[in-house]
Design a binder for these strands. Structure first.
Lengths: 210, 210, 210, 210
DNA sequence: CATGAATGAGTGTTCATTCAT
DNA sequence: AATGAATGAACACTCATTCAT
């Protein structure tokens, strides 16, 4: 009986996450307006009414999906840059690959495509996403590039654009995976693609120092 | 009287384009499901019923928007690559800048973001878009890179990934412009950004030949 | 040129009849609300706007269809009864068969089914139809039956019900022809059916006189 | 609380029948296209959306109305013919009168007029109605007539036409009641009319046997 | 006289939201 | 806490009607 209570308890606490997980998949697949709460509830294995026990409205659910999808992203990386002792090239490479392994390749990888699709309908949320995720991500990359330039490992480059040049193919791969890539349009193998991309970029910004 | 008839005639012929133009803006802004035909009609300055004189359904309108947004893209570029006599770096630079000037910066620039957002709901259209636009665009860039490698102007690189690395920041800029960028999230100046991006990339793939 | 003017003239005068003829077919087939003026115009080979040159509204067109469908019915029969010199059985038989040949089997035969279907939406018209067509038809048959009873050819029967018993199968055949019969539900051969029906009825009401 | 639950339960089970009952009335009165679901819902005392909890579409509702209107008809009569021990005239008379009492005079009596009006728009349903209702009804009457002829109670007649001659006035009365009869066109008293009709017919087909 | 492009009110259908159980 | 029947506002689509040509 205590076991049951325990299960129930765990269930109750896990509910919101189960609901947002189901919602994330559908929002990514069909967009905000195109997603029916009936389907979200069905995928989460609950009734439609139950959704309203945890979220005030469809919009509140959407915001929760985005915010929850953001948190894990925020907590990654910063520590890595602070404590890394190897070369800046290895740091950059590690950062991207690790991020892909722990975020990009999971279902959270659908968040960017979702945010892009719905930003027009949720401008405040878009701003929040920008300030929280994008700005911090760029800041992280900026530190890596500056670190490499300071050590002479990277040559002197226009940092802000370089950040984009490095991020863009990674984000594009993610977007692809959740849009045309899901329509049988053929896509790259992520591991190979990331490796080649990094080599190309690192070569492009390599300085004279070893 | 002839002038008026002429006006009416011209109007009737111009209508579909006026309607798809209005629809493109709203589809890009709000997505397919989020766009009301009332609004499309209002933006085009006609009544809702008029839409149905030219398009059988909302879906038909959407497809027309995409297809019309594709045609101008297809007719660009190929001739340029064939006849270009300068350096491959100049060719690549010219291709991107020209494309931006004549396509990317116009309202047709919203098509990629739209296709990405709605591919899940229109898989066949996504395939059509992929086969028609993306494949040809990549082919064009492939020829440029191979031309540069053949002449020794570019070093030996993994071409397929390089294509993405070159395209991704350009496409991302376009996506940004029609998503977060429209929410006051701040964006780059396109001209400067493209120039820096190209310099960075061209430097990264530069070979030993002059 | 005169020939053309003549043609044009004849055309102009024939137009209303062409339009109501086309309308009758569609009204019978699809009902009043189910019939689109587009289709009526198309079937009559004119544009939709032309309909409004001859009829103020869809309702006016419908009423014209019914009224026109009534006139030919009214002018039949009365003279026949007045002047007939043969037996009452032959009169009754001739009346029915002639009516079928000249009205029932033509496209005007669709009017009763139409009136039945739409009476709920056009009560005044239904009353007009009743007073004009049905009452007169019954009166005609009443005279025939009374004539036969007076001569002893028919036995004494309840006339009003007999009228219905005689008419009902004929009307039902007509209704059938324009409803289930048009759905491949199989139907009788009119000539045989009418003959048998008349024999049955005449036998049923036959009196002792020769 | 259990009582309430019971009420709710009973309500849910009764709903479809309530809805089809309301729909039948309106379909009969205004035809399929002329009937608005708003009105059906209002007459049933529910909201428009509720209709869609029980029927997928207006067409599905229509089909349910017809099918439900058919079932009670099918289950009548067959047993009566099998077990009847009296005279064939009494059997025929009893069959018609009983059918009128239990079907014809109820709201189900509107089904034939409805089916006639809409057969053009629902051919498959018309076929279903024909095969299910009409064919069986005729079969029943055929057995009665053959029974009477076998016993010598009825004279030798052309059975198929006789079936129609017997049924037609009954059906016509029903059609009348739901079309012109509802427009104040005056109609017979059903009981008297049926009695007279039966006497007339039975007299017409009477044989020499007692 | 004739056309057909344009209109906009009306209807079938969907779906976020509520609430009695 | 959880359900799911019920709601009603919103939207895609149709079609009778108008009017400039």
């Amino acid at each position: 009986m205590e076991a049951l209570a325990h299960t129930r308890q765990r269930r109750k606490e896990a509910r919101p996450a189960e609901l947002t997980a189901a919602a994330l998949e559908l929002f990514v697949e069909k967009g905000f307006v195109g997603t029916r709460l009936d389907d979200v509830a069905a995928r989460a294995g609950v009734s439609k009414g139950t959704l309203y026990l945890y979220f005030d409205s469809k919009e509140a659910l959407f915001k929760a999906v985005i915010r929850e999808g953001i948190l894990p992203i925020l907590d990654e990386g910063a520590g890595m840059v602070d404590n890394f002792t190897g070369s800046s090239a290895d740091l950059l490479r590690g950062l991207i690959l690790e991020w892909w392994k722990r975020i990009g390749s999971t279902s959270l990888g659908g968040v960017p495509k979702l945010m892009i699709s719905e930003s027009g309908n949720f401008p405040e949320l878009a701003n929040y996403y920008h300030d929280t995720v994008i700005t911090r991500g760029r800041e992280l990359m900026r530190r890596v590039l500056l670190r490499g330039m300071a050590s002479g490992e990277f040559r002197a480059i226009e940092v802000e654009t370089a950040i984009d040049v490095i991020f863009a193919p990674v984000i594009m791969m993610l977007i692809w995976r959740y849009s045309l890539g899901a329509c049988g349009c053929g896509s790259h193998d992520p591991a190979t693609y990331l490796k080649t991309h990094l080599d190309l970029v690192l070569n492009g910004i390599a300085g004279s120092a070893p």
